[in-house]
């Protein structure tokens, strides 16, 4: 059964077995507005926790997407590069960004759980 955690930078992380899938939250896509360009990391790249590894551009501005935890990029979602609006339509589903093989299995548990993330969004 998949578990979902969040970061204070409004990314979600879903764990299915050994695979972590990462995207941006519905709150994030709403705040960004209509996305027009997405740049994803190269598969195989090693990233540190908090490292900027993807870029999203809305009609308003550019924003970085960060690696929620350390690991290696295992796969990226080319569909959102072709159609950035997919992230606006399905941020926490088909609009995922990349998959990560984590360096340290304990890192996942340190991320925000859903109540903690909801509480964070409520303060914004």
């Amino acid at each position: 059964m998949a578990e979902i955690r969040y970061t204070k930078d409004h990314e979600w992380v879903r764990r299915d077995g050994d695979t972590l899938t990462i995207g941006i939250t519905d709150h994030a896509q709403t705040a960004l507005g209509d996305l027009v360009f997405i740049e994803l990391p190269e598969p195989g790249r090693e990233v540190a926790a908090g490292e900027a590894c993807a870029v999203v551009e809305s009609v308003k501005a550019a924003s970085d997407v960060y690696a929620p935890l350390a690991g290696t990029i295992a796969a990226v979602n080319g569909a959102i590069v072709e159609d950035p609006a997919l992230v606006n339509r399905a941020p926490e589903g088909e609009g995922w960004f990349f998959r990560l093989t984590q360096a340290n299995p304990d890192d996942f548990a340190a991320l925000l759980d859903e109540p903690a993330y909801r509480a964070l969004v409520a303060t914004l």
Binding site: G33, D34, V59, K60, N88
Partner: peptide
């Protein structure tokens, strides 16, 4: 207002 719920692209 910078945008409304329809979004900048729909407003444009």
């Amino acid at each position: 207002p910078v945008s409304y719920p329809a979004g900048i692209l729909a407003e444009h």
